[in-house]
Nucleic acid binder design. Structure first.
Lengths: 226, 226
DNA sequence: AGCTTAATCGACAGGGTGTTGAGCGGGTGT
DNA sequence: ACACCCGCTCAACACCCTGTCGATTAAGCT
């Protein structure tokens, strides 16, 4: 009822049989159509018929490849979060070398990834309210990032670079939540928003002050700024 | 096309004729039904027929009172934002007396207001993605709060209590965005969330460090902590 | 050739929205 | 007292979208 995403299975997205069968092309055609239409109108204004016709198939045939419209978006979201995870990889290990530079790098990479797929991200944010599956996946992804940042904060505190304060998990949740909402406003462009050019530095500033109480954290183990 | 909310007009919500006519009762019955059903299921799972039957009328009659399901939610949202605005009133004037206490008071009042109407707030957050009218109203409300906080930050900087840094507007947007998203997660309970009991203090901590670089800002004009 | 399986679609059922047009009852004015 | 407007009501309709069923074709294996 809530499991299947593609007919062949979710994670490694291996196609149906061995060699590239006709169905693979249809499946990617649906995905491509969804991304294209998302650039033009909101997810809610795209019908399954639009997706099917865009991929050159009939509506019932669409159901052979995806169980619902939302499942298409879920597949798209999977790709984006994988890309974001990959982009963040390794940054945490070098935090102590230069905290400001590396926190900035982390935020900047997420910004680049989300900005590069803003239509998909925006659509997900919009249906998260109505679709439990998207909500669940997003919660999972967020939980990973929250944990990673929490661990980084605790490491910085342990080496004496950051002062004690809020529970690291609560702080991590607050900062990650801020980023999500601020990016949404910036990309969506409705309501009060930070200019896209400034958003990384604005977020960075709040992160640094919340974690270190200063925008210029020390670089070596428990050493002051020279 | 996008204006009317109630048949009689929006703002002061005066009923249709002079004395309480039958229609007034129907209208409030619809609103009450919406709030009641929202406590049980998601907004998307409530049909206009549910609202109409709950108020003891037929579906076409519903359209005599509201142009759409969303318009009902919009009316509910109006009430909540008015209450929040009222709750925030006057706090900014006394900020310098004791910044920490008064920022906390501000956040706590918003928390209480939203928490007291969490079903409505959650529903609005959910349809904001699909309904332009809700999006517009929310953006308007947020803009007011962003401006008020921005002004307060500038005042604190002018009296020397807060250091210069980010443009006050950008900082205000980031902090307000954080609150919105964190409250949403806390009230919705899906995904990583701060416990409801702690959320005010967590938010306060990030606000204070971002604005003052310390969690114990000075109380008198340009005086240090004793 | 015969069997299986991937792939396809016409046609249907169901449920939701928004609109139309007709009807009813109580004030109000003359 | 009569007509008449107007607030109010709903059955019935047109429409759109979703999801499913069953029949059908094409390709591969034995």
């Amino acid at each position: 009822m809530t499991t299947a995403r593609t007919p062949a299975g979710a994670a490694p997205s291996r196609g149906r049989r061995a060699g590239r069968s006709a169905g693979d092309e249809r499946e990617t055609a649906i995905l491509a159509t969804a991304e294209r239409l998302l650039r033009q109108r909101a997810f809610g204004d795209i019908s399954i018929d639009d997706l099917a016709r865009g991929a050159g198939i009939s509506r019932p045939t669409f159901y052979f490849y995806f169980p619902s419209k939302d499942a298409v978006l879920l597949t798209l979201l999977d790709r984006v979060t994988e890309e974001a995870d990959a982009a963040a990889g390794g940054v945490f290990d070098r935090l102590a070398e230069d905290p400001r530079a590396h926190w900035r790098e982390l935020i900047a990479r997420f910004h680049a990834t989300f900005g590069g797929h803003r239509d998909v991200v925006l659509a997900c944010a919009q249906v998260r309210g109505t679709n439990a599956e998207v909500r669940r996946l997003w919660a999972e992804v967020l939980e990973r990032w929250v944990r990673a940042v929490q661990a980084a904060i605790e490491t910085e505190r342990a080496r004496g670079a950051a002062p004690d304060g809020l529970p690291a998990r609560d702080l991590s949740i607050a900062l990650n939540s801020m980023n999500e909402r601020v990016w949404y406003a910036t990309f969506a462009g409705d309501g009060p928003a930070v200019a896209e050019r400034d958003v990384v530095d604005v977020l960075l500033d709040v992160w640094l002050t919340a974690i270190y109480r200063t925008t210029t954290p020390p670089v070596m183990p428990s050493a002051g700024t020279p």
